[in-house]
């Protein structure tokens, strides 16, 4: 069962085609990752899903019905660029955002206080937002995203700019909400996070969806010829070896692609013969990162971007 269906969405700004005929589905109860480089069209796609932008073409179907205002009330949205009213007090801020979703009353106030306690912010309840540290402001922003108990949680680059504690906190919330059966959609250019958290992904590049589906299926499909190893010793002899298509060093692990799936055992044998101390040999394993590089172009570009994060 699909919670959301994105059908043939297109959006242009003047001459710039931001999103081109994008289609994918978000299954119920899943964590869905929209993956792509900066400027690939992720935010525009999300804004169209949120009905913030009206698509030039295409539509977004929510459980069989075209999205509209009622969808907004069911969504908690954490935009990439976050903002709060600086002069507003913490509790006021939370209640205001909930009120815009149509949630008011004592219950929500109580819940806001519970969240503040859980996030260790009880003593800041009457502080102005501007008096909070950046990390605490981020916490307020998360709380405001989920306070009205949304069925859909849409997070645009949720981990960018977060300190490690808040990163964990957010992961915790995401997994907790998943257990509650909520649908979580997030966009990121960080493949590691997507790989660890998502059940389903859609990969977008230059406004086009270049890949989408269940992460495990995708990995299976792309990993037939792939091995991921940890080792000690020298493997430079593999470069240019007839059974090896390419070697990619990721630091901790190395990804090796052979020319034919049947050659994986040969590879292991070769390594042992050459005296390489193999610590880990994972056949049919490929990182999302590798898939992305394969599909979306030059490795240098992407590494450059990862460095910039």
């Amino acid at each position: 069962m699909n919670a959301l269906e994105v059908k043939n969405l297109s959006k242009s700004f003047g001459d710039l085609k931001a999103v081109n005929n994008a289609s994918f589905v978000v299954p119920e109860g899943s964590i869905f990752g929209l993956i792509g480089r900066n400027g690939a069209g992720k935010t525009t796609t999300i804004r169209m899903m949120m009905n913030i932008y009206i698509p030039d073409e295409g539509e977004v179907i929510l459980r069989g019905i075209k999205v509209g205002q009622e969808f907004k009330n069911k969504v908690g949205y954490l935009p990439e660029e976050r903002g709060l009213y600086k002069k507003m007090k913490v509790l006021e801020t939370l209640l205001y955002f909930a009120e815009l979703k149509g949630v008011t009353g004592k219950a929500v106030k109580k819940k806001a206080k519970e969240y503040l306690e859980r996030f260790d912010l009880t003593d800041r309840i009457d502080s102005k937002v501007e008096d909070l540290s950046k990390g605490n402001q981020q916490k307020i922003q998360f709380i405001s995203t989920i306070l009205h108990d949304p069925e859909f949680i849409i997070l645009d680059e949720p981990f960018s700019g977060l300190d490690p504690i808040n990163t964990n906190l957010l992961k915790e919330i995401i997994l907790e909400k998943k257990k509650e059966g909520k649908v979580i959609i997030f966009s990121t250019h960080l493949m590691d996070f997507a790989e660890k958290m998502c059940d389903h992904i859609a990969m977008i590049d230059h406004g086009n969806i270049i890949l989408n589906g269940s992460l495990s299926e995708i990995k299976q499909k792309y990993s037939q010829r792939n091995v991921s190893i940890n080792y000690e010793g020298d493997i430079s002899f593999l470069n240019g070896h007839p059974i090896v298509e390419k070697v990619a060093d990721f630091g901790n692990t190395t990804g090796i692609t052979v020319n034919d799936p049947g050659q994986i055992q040969d590879l292991l044998k070769l390594l042992v013969e050459r005296g390489v101390n193999v610590k880990r040999f994972d056949a049919h394993d490929i990182s999302l990162h590798e898939i992305f590089i394969d599909l979306a172009g030059k490795e240098e570009d992407i590494l450059e971007e990862v460095k910039n994060v």
């Binding site: 949120m50 913030i52 907004k72 935009p79 660029e81 903002g83 405001s144």
Partner: peptide
């Protein structure tokens, strides 16, 4: 203020 502090995007996720 709403535009530069990006609050507006949060607002627009709730309100037209």
């Amino acid at each position: 203020e709403e535009k530069t502090s990006k609050i507006v995007e949060v607002l627009l996720s709730s309100i037209q």
